[in-house]
Design a protein around this nucleic acid. Structure first.
Length: 575
RNA sequence: GGGCCUGUAGCUCAAUUGGUCAGAGCAGAGCGCUCAUAACGCUUUGGUUGGGGGUUCGAGUCCCUCCGGGCCUACCA
């Protein structure tokens, strides 16, 4: 039994996430967590909302609410949606928690003690009307290069030229539109990542089994140009973790907060501490996951994230951990994902393009989304959601291959033998062949899950479902029944056991359907089939069951067309 | 501009890291079955692996080049 710590990248607080966000981190991490638990591993699966930063303040202002209240409400909204998608977090925390605040301040203090923090004075644009400093991309103006009038301070969207905010002609605040801007001097703390470069490089070099997407991004940052740059870790904002050096004040940093990307990954630790608090446990309960001097020596730590998160998880967060010179657990494996596109373009919040988590659950049960998203998860390159593909996958894989198998077996049994597992003869060569094939396929499935190759795992799982239909077709209990009801009974008994096996194997991907099947079979729980042959003799003759309702309803052409139109957004995908 | 990823059948993806006739699912065609959500099974048609050149006994895989798609480029998170 292994101990596995799993974290999903934190969803940002300022709104409901779309399916692309879901599939890029939370969903695959959930499958992995469920699988590890099913195999008997001790799992700690952590996620949280990432609540600090300028976008949260602006979203709160737009909603007319204090930012703390806004975040509290949005956290509940996101927690609800996570439950709706059956995300099985052991704890869903908040980066604004007291726990995270304390750990963040502690680590910053340690970094300072170790000479890895530097104070830098720099000039930034301040908006008097907004009463805040503006990050580069919150400044708009006319591009000096191409004349585009909505160029951002970091880059012109029109001509793609990199800009400095002071380059812009007639600059204005993107928040209020105010042109009452000035350049002010401000002091900030920088994490001296450049001093950590060799250590980080050596660490990344060990990770030959990581996805190339992960290591190539890390190497680029480590080696590009002058190499890894120091990074500002404080901001002039109200909402965030107040800058402190451990539990002491930090002279000169009054009124400032840590940069959201400094405190967000630390919340993986913070949320685990929140979990301990919520369960009335003491610090040792969470420290045994995070401190190698307090029991985390044997923990395997796996992170899931979209590719945009990789630099922070391969560089700045490890730099924070390593630089503390304290025995914190470092990540062992980083699984990163590409993006999911929507029907010929990108998901777009502003244009209302694509399907968002709340809408998805309004339309169809979570298992449908889970299955499609996971069987198309963008592991190797960006992938694309289309309604045609979605409809085909759901109808074929879930309704026809799995759902119909459950239906045909249970209904046939009810009609000929009643709602209980039939008596009858033993298993013969046909069953032995199925056992052999499924054993082989389960081993392959386990291999893919262990390697976190989600797509391959879904393909193997589907192939295991197909074996049931092949078996039934060949065994033909409906024909055998006419001359030899006992033999037909054995076939049905075997098929009912296959259904139970499928429920167990499928649970990481489609937990609701799995639960529905087990409940129809009058089973409370189900062990992982370490021995397939034994697993297929689990349901004894005479065991009562119910014929379940239709597991997966098909998506009709009309419904598909209607949804397609509804989520197309305000602009067409292609010009 | 620089860096990285990517291009395989009509569609979505594989291919044990250079090694038999490039494989699956869906869609298409034919046959079978009738227990089942008009479901299932069997058979089968589709590929000059984006183009061109090179290395090699052997290239989807390595190198060069051209074309297309995507991402990142450090103060959005």
């Amino acid at each position: 039994m292994a101990r596995i710590l799993i974290t999903s990248a934190l969803p940002y607080i300022n709104g409901i996430k779309h399916l692309g966000n879901l599939v890029g981190s939370q969903l695959p991490s959930d499958v992995f967590a469920r699988y590890c638990r099913a195999r008997g591993d001790e799992v700690m699966y952590i996620c949280a909302t990432d609540e600090h930063g300028t976008p949260a303040e602006i979203a709160a202002a737009k909603a007319g609410k204090p930012v703390a209240q806004y975040c509290a409400e949005m956290h509940e909204v996101q927690a609800d949606l996570a439950r709706g998608f059956r995300l099985s977090f052991d704890y869903f925390g908040r980066s604004s928690s007291a726990r995270n605040r304390a750990i963040t301040q502690h680590l910053a203090g340690r970094l300072a003690d170790n000479g890895l923090i530097e104070e830098v004075s720099e000039k930034q644009v301040y908006s008097r009307a907004d009463g805040r400093f503006l990050p580069d991309r919150y400044i708009e103006g006319t591009c000096p290069n191409c004349g585009y009038d909505s160029a951002r301070g970091d880059q012109c969207e029109n001509c793609t030229k990199q800009l400095d905010p002071t380059d812009l002609i007639d600059p204005r605040s993107a928040i209020s539109g105010s042109t009452d801007l000035e350049v002010r001097e401000t002091r900030h703390l920088f994490l001296r990542q450049s001093k950590m470069r060799d250590r980080l490089n050596a660490w990344i070099d060990q990770k030959s089994d990581w996805p190339i997407l992960t290591t190539s991004i890390a190497r680029k940052w480590l080696n590009d140009g002058d190499g890894l740059q120091d990074r500002g870790i404080t901001r002039d904002l109200d909402w965030g973790v107040p800058v402190k050096r451990g539990d002491r004040d930090w002279p000169g940093m009054e009124g400032k907060v840590f940069y959201v990307w400094f405190d967000a990954p630390i919340e993986y630790i913070g949320a685990t501490a929140e979990w301990a608090d919520a369960n009335g446990l003491d610090d040792s309960a969470w420290e045994r996951w995070w401190r190698t001097d307090k029991g985390a020596e044997d923990v395997r730590y796996v992170q899931f994230m979209g590719k945009d998160n990789v630099p922070f998880h391969t560089l700045s967060f490890p730099a924070t951990i390593m630089g503390s010179n304290e025995p914190w657990k470092l990540v062992d494996y980083i699984k990163s994902f590409n993006y999911l596109n929507y029907d010929g373009g990108q998901f777009s919040t502003s244009k209302g393009r694509g399907v968002f988590m709340d809408q998805a659950l309004d339309i169809l049960p979570s298992d449908y989304w889970r299955w499609w998203l996971l069987s198309h998860v963008p592991e190797n390159s960006d992938s694309e959601f289309t309604w045609e593909n979605f409809q085909a996958s759901i109808n074929k894989d879930l309704a026809d291959v799995l759902g119909n198998f459950v239906s045909r077996v249970t209904k046939f049994c009810r009609a000929r033998f009643g709602e209980a597992v039939p008596e009858g003869g033993g298993y013969g060569p046909a069953e032995a062949a199925v056992i052999a094939e499924i054993s082989r396929r389960v081993a392959a499935y386990e291999g893919h899950m262990a390697a976190i190759e989600i797509r391959k795992a879904t393909a193997e799982l589907r192939a295991i479902w197909v074996v049931g239909n092949e078996y039934l077709q060949t065994a033909a209990p409906w024909a055998v029944f006419k001359s030899d009801p006992e033999a037909a009974g054995a076939i049905v008994r075997f098929a009912l056991n296959l259904i139970r096996l499928y429920a167990v194997l499928s649970e990481p991907f489609i937990p609701d359907a799995s639960a529905t099947i087990l409940s129809a079979l009058h089973l409370q729980s189900a062990e992982w089939p370490d021995d397939v042959e034994a697993a297929l003799s689990t349901l004894p003759a005479g065991h009562a069951f119910d014929v379940p309702e239709v597991l997966f309803a098909k998506i009709t052409d009309d419904a598909r067309t209607e949804m397609q139109a509804r989520f197309a957004g305000t602009q067409t995908a292609k010009a």
